[in-house]
């Protein structure tokens, strides 16, 4: 990779910051009310044992925060994008399963801020996560872009 960022690199740069920031925010909002997020997971009716539900309610937000912070810093960018991509694929599959089974459940993906998707889980949530997945794939494929620790460390 050359030291000078390309025009496309500068286009990817805001995507990396937005994605990272969104995942830090999503993790923080979930951690600010872990019982609410745990209750939301129960509402998905996946018949998971309680210890898995409670464990996921703590682990998922921390994975989001760590991966989001790595994206913002531009450190291990592709790996962080890969992890966020895997999370998003899992979220989309779970949301699809909730819609397919006709369950009236709340996402709690961004705490009480579900912009632009109001109300119970629906196609809006799937589309929103698919857009985020598209952004994640772009960042993962292109790399950190400018102003990234990854770039500094390879100089």
């Amino acid at each position: 990779m050359s030291d000078k960022p390309t025009a496309l690199g500068w286009l990817v740069f805001p995507l990396r910051l937005i994605l990272g920031g969104l995942f830090i925010l999503a993790g923080y909002l979930k951690l600010s009310a872990v019982p609410v997020f745990a209750g939301a997971i129960v509402g998905f009716k996946l018949n998971l044992p309680d210890h898995i539900v409670i464990g996921s309610a703590f682990v998922v937000p921390w994975v989001e925060i760590i991966a989001g912070a790595m994206l913002v810093l531009g450190l291990w960018t592709r790996a962080a994008a890969m992890l966020i991509g895997a999370l998003l694929v899992a979220f989309i599959a779970m949301l699809g399963s909730v819609i397919f089974r006709g369950i009236d459940a709340h996402c709690s993906c961004f705490g009480k801020f579900e912009f632009p998707c109001d109300g119970p889980i629906g196609w809006c949530h799937i589309i929103r996560n698919s857009v985020l997945l598209g952004m994640t794939v772009t960042v993962g494929a292109w790399g950190p872009g400018p102003l990234a620790i990854d770039r500094e460390s390879t100089k």
């Binding site: 464990g55 703590f58 921390w62 760590i66 991966a67 592709r78 895997a86």
Partner: peptide, 29 residues
């Protein structure tokens, strides 16, 4: 190498999440 790093980040999340669950008040489902 990227998969290895992604797994490391996920593991970090599991460790921090597990530690957080220990210090957090018990959750009633």
């Amino acid at each position: 190498k990227q998969i290895q790093r992604a797994a490391t980040l996920a593991l970090a999340g599991v460790v921090v999440g597990a530690a957080h669950s220990i210090i957090h008040d018990p959750i009633k489902l």
